[in-house]
């Protein structure tokens, strides 16, 4: 008995449910928690696809670092209340409708694509392993890798500059 489809369906429903809860939660803190839940589901998908490296990175970077950063900011601003003013009901409806239409259009466009017979390799293959990816990363993709370190540096500087209080403002 092949258990893979069941795992896939379970993870998919989990991811969608968590995403919906994230969007609909009034409290930002709950949103963050539901998003982390979504990320875990997606990491589960990665493992199912035998992409262990990405699964682990996803959990560490996204669910761990980034979402904690979000949570931190929310806590800092004391926004953990259901204080968010609601948008105009019509605007909400239109937004949801527009999103629904986009989904509908894309699904309708892609359902007849030639991909129908294609399969994604599940639970096998070695390309998702850190050994293979690392070799690629440090050979063919070494330049983008190094440039990404520069990106981090500039992001760090930018965040520091934006985040610090304005000195001139203080002086005056």
């Amino acid at each position: 008995m092949n258990v893979t489809p069941y795992i896939f369906w379970f993870l998919s429903v989990w991811a969608l449910f968590s995403a919906l809860m994230m969007v609909t939660s009034r409290n930002p803190v709950y949103s963050v928690l539901w998003l982390i839940s979504t990320f875990f589901a997606i990491s589960g998908h990665y493992i199912l696809l035998n992409a262990q490296f990405l699964a682990v990175v996803n959990i560490i970077v996204y669910a761990g670092a980034i979402m904690v950063l979000f949570l931190f900011v929310i806590m800092l601003m004391n926004l953990n209340k259901e204080t968010e003013p609601q948008k105009n009901r019509w605007l909400k409806l239109v937004g949801a409708l527009a999103g629904g239409c986009l989904l509908l259009v894309l699904v309708a466009a892609l359902k007849d694509a030639e991909l129908k017979s294609q399969q994604a390799m599940v639970g096998a293959g070695s390309i998702g392993l850190i050994k293979v990816l690392g070799k690629e990363l440090f050979t063919r993709y070494v330049v983008p890798f190094e440039i990404s370190s520069l990106l981090f540096l500039s992001a760090m500087v930018g965040a520091a500059v934006i985040g610090k209080k304005e000195i001139t403002h203080q002086n005056s």
């Binding site: 998919s12 969608l16 995403a19 994230m22 999103g99 892609l110 991909l115």
Partner: peptide, 23 residues
Amino acid sequence: MPINYYLFLSLALFTIGMVGVLT
């Protein structure tokens, strides 16, 4: 698994995110 499933799952998640941005 058929690639279609992943495609539609991704689209669904993407659209949920988009609706969130809009609403």
